[in-house]
């Protein structure tokens, strides 16, 4: 599909920070159903690449926060504080069956931010925190 610019540029990879990689992996893989396609690094310095089986060409990378060596200790502390208070990163996912997704996810010990509801901005969605404090909203789409 071409755009007004004639370019074909799509979203290929997006990132979310983790603090405990195994906990985040369990959330996205075991609970949300993503598949782990690449696992690089060790300890807290791991880059976990996941894809949804229904959208295998879009990659979500769970990455250590503030891994850039150019980030100072003060800046790193600020980033981890923003993550802990829930004000850093977010993602919006989509599903065709919101109630089933919510029932499955909320049945696990995760932080529920919003039960399925019609939002004033015109979508029906629910919301959770992932183990690193990222906001994960799930929209219902046709």
């Amino acid at each position: 599909m071409s755009s007004v610019t004639g370019m074909d540029i799509r979203i290929h990879t997006t990132f979310l920070p983790h603090t405990r990689p195994e906990a985040s992996l369990a959330f996205y893989r075991d609970l949300l159903g993503f598949e782990l396609v690449q696992d690089v690094g060790s300890g807290e310095m791991r880059w976990l690449t996941l894809v949804s089986p229904s959208q295998p060409d879009v990659r979500l990378v769970l990455a250590p926060p503030a891994a850039d060596p150019g980030i100072s200790d003060d800046e790193r502390r600020t980033i981890t504080e923003l993550m802990a208070k829930g004000s850093y990163q977010s993602i919006i996912l989509a599903t065709s069956d919101l109630d089933a997704a919510f029932a499955r996810i909320a049945g696990a010990a995760v932080e529920v931010v919003s039960e399925p509801a019609e939002q004033p901005w015109g979508v029906r969605d629910c919301a959770f925190r992932d183990p690193a404090g990222n906001m994960v909203r799930i929209d219902e789409v046709g």
Binding site: E81, A84, K85, G86, R129
Partner: peptide, 12 residues
């Protein structure tokens, strides 16, 4: 950080 996470839970 654990304290901040508790405050996040309150706000959520």
């Amino acid at each position: 950080l654990a304290d901040l996470a508790l405050l996040r839970r309150v706000r959520d």
